[in-house]
Design a protein around this nucleic acid. Structure first.
Length: 334
DNA sequence: AAAAAGAGCAACCGCGGCATC
DNA sequence: AGATGCCGCGGTTGCTCTTTT
């Protein structure tokens, strides 16, 4: 048996709202709120509308501080960034854009931004936000792959984040997205497209970072991070909580994956913060129980001796359960 | 000027999640 | 533990306005 309809559709008005209906709804909610029950609201407010329709009208149009009209370039960048991180979860994206509704953003994406991406990807390999977002698009459809659900709902190592190879690590999953073509791709921040340029990656000459684990990336990418002196203050400061959370999930998953393969040594992910990179035990860093002996520079980073203590301090001083609250940038290398 | 096509967007629909009984 | 009801979300529809032919 299916769900009972929320209202009798033959007895409620449908279609566009009249100014009178808007006024009734606005007046009622401003006086009494929705009372925690949208279904009974129309009757109390004297409206011949379905409760769901009232809710939608209020949330998308009538409530205070709703912003209508053109989106700014800054808003575009935020949308690109968040879309890359969370996919078509419009409510999450809307939460980062004060005054914008999920419906607005969804419509804007479908009518404008998606086209912008398509045209950018076909016309150039520029560093524009749109161009940088294209690796997440499935060329065979209009859709973007949804992000991998965090490990709360998917077994942490149920996806294979990398394919080991003697010289390069190919990835099938980066930044929480499935990639149609396995390719090396860095964490993505459209606010700073230059920091993640594939061209830069390939033009850099790196031989000073090597490690024992292989998630991604090629060496030049690591070097690119390490040599970017303003990286921490500029880029990390702009990374959204959502992006950081996803990165953290990937780090944890990767760590678990490593352990299932029997790796028990120094944890071989690197963290970059204020020109520091190092190796450490991720679990201990997250739990804040790390010590200098557990979190150390490893043998191949480009930092200095002081980096080791800095990283352990980072772990010891942390106040929340999220490593990334400290604005560390994870990277993975082979 | 009129018809057709395209674009934009408000509103609807149905499903999943959650709370309550 | 299962049924029920509501909320919130994302996908889709269809109306209106604009542009093109």
């Amino acid at each position: 048996m299916g769900r009972a309809p929320c209202c009798d559709k033959t007895k409620v008005k449908r279609g566009p709202w009249s100014p009178e209906e808007d006024a009734k709804l606005r007046d009622y909610i401003e006086k009494y709120g929705n009372g925690g029950n949208w279904i009974s609201l129309p009757l109390k407010a004297g409206l011949r509308r379905c409760g769901k329709s009232c809710r939608l009208r209020w949330l998308n149009y009538l409530r205070p501080n709703i912003k209508h009209g053109d989106f700014s370039e800054e808003e575009d960048r935020i949308i690109f960034s968040l879309f890359a991180a969370v996919g078509s979860r419009w409510s999450i994206i809307a939460a980062h854009l004060p005054g914008r509704t999920d419906n607005d953003i969804k419509n804007y994406w479908n009518t404008k931004l998606r086209k912008k991406i398509m045209s950018s990807s076909s016309s150039s390999s520029s560093h524009s936000s749109a161009a940088m977002a294209t690796p997440f698009l499935n060329p065979n459809s209009h859709d973007v792959k949804r992000p991998i659900t965090p490990s709360a709902t998917i077994a942490p190592f149920s996806y294979n984040p990398y394919v080991e190879n003697s010289t390069t690590s190919l990835i099938s999953n980066i930044n929480g997205f499935e990639a149609d073509d396995q390719q090396i791709f860095p964490f993505f921040n459209p606010n700073y497209p230059h920091d993640f340029s594939l061209e830069d990656m390939s033009s850099n000459n790196n031989n000073n970072i090597s490690g024992t684990s292989g998630f991604l990336l090629n060496h030049s990418m690591c070097d690119h991070y390490s040599n970017h002196t303003n990286f921490s203050s500029d880029v990390n400061g702009k990374r959204s909580e959502i992006m950081m959370k996803q990165e953290e999930m990937m780090m944890i998953d990767h760590h678990i994956d490593q352990m299932t393969k029997g790796y028990n040594g120094d944890f071989t992910q690197g963290y970059y913060n204020n020109d520091i990179n190092g190796h450490g035990d991720l679990k201990q860093m997250i739990s804040g129980t790390g010590t200098n002996s557990n979190i150390n520079m490893g043998g191949s980073g480009s930092g200095s001796a002081s980096s080791s203590s800095f990283i352990s301090n980072l772990a010891e001083n942390k106040t929340s359960s999220s490593l990334l609250k400290h604005k560390c940038l994870p990277y993975f290398y082979s």
